[in-house]
């Protein structure tokens, strides 16, 4: 397990992203898999083929060669979202709680670029942060048994698009027609840890034209 320590979540994420590339290059075929997250990288190797000391030395060597704090951000991916009560049933409740109009909530959700801090919970579930403090909202007391695929949701200062139907306790505010996980394509999902995501409001017609489903 590799931990990074930086002043902010964003800086830690930049460091994680750079470390992933460096570790992949340094370990090559000895790397079985890795899991980048907010401020850590879990490195998996086969203990029958290599050992902890050698792996740690190679990883340390690769990390030493990295610049103090890499500036290179990942790609920016724009995800279209249909914001409406029929697409996100908690939209009005969230606006009311925040003391804002629904339009203001949408504007704030679309106003900034979010970083992909981690992917997990389910295949293609990307944890994006951080949403404007004014529209942050705690998780529901009782999670829903079925959150639809494509649901755009907020929990605390995180936001995400549900990649498939699953139980979930986040506040639903809209629906994204882009498939976040598809095992039949490479690389399987449109974003990776370290990328930036911006949401763009679209109309109901556009949502349906892009293959969105309101069922």
């Amino acid at each position: 397990m590799l931990y990074v320590q930086e002043a902010t979540l964003e800086e830690a994420s930049l460091r994680v992203q750079a470390a992933v590339v460096a570790i992949e290059q340094a370990l090559g075929p000895d790397l079985v898999d890795l899991v980048p997250s907010y401020a850590s990288v879990l490195i998996l190797y086969n203990p029958l083929q290599s050992n902890q000391i050698t792996i740690a030395r190679r990883v340390r060597g690769a990390l030493k060669a990295l610049p103090t704090l890499p500036e290179t951000a990942g790609r920016t991916i724009v995800l279209p979202v249909y914001y409406a009560l029929e697409a996100g049933e908690d939209l009005e409740a969230l606006a009311e709680r925040a003391g804002l109009s629904v339009d203001a909530v949408i504007a704030l959700h679309c106003a900034c670029d979010y970083r992909v801090y981690a992917i997990g919970f389910a295949p293609g579930f990307a944890y994006l942060g951080e949403v404007d403090e004014r529209i942050a909202a705690p998780r529901l007391a009782t999670p829903r048994p079925h959150v639809p695929r494509g649901a755009v949701a907020i929990a605390d200062r995180q936001t995400a698009v549900y990649p498939s139907v699953s139980p979930g306790g986040w506040n639903l505010i809209g629906r994204c027609p882009v498939r976040m996980f598809n095992p039949d394509t490479q690389p399987g999902m449109p974003v990776a840890v370290g990328d930036s995501v911006r949401f763009e409001p679209i109309s109901r017609e556009r949502f349906l034209a892009l293959g969105g489903d309101l069922a």
Binding site: V20, V32, D33, L34, V35, P36, L42, L44, I119, G120, F121, A122, P123, G124, F125, P163, F181, P187, G188, M189, A192, V193
Partner: peptide, 11 residues
């Protein structure tokens, strides 16, 4: 299934 943990896939 290995090499896809970063998509959130377990093995």
């Amino acid at each position: 299934r290995w090499g896809h943990h970063r998509l959130g896939l377990s093995n």
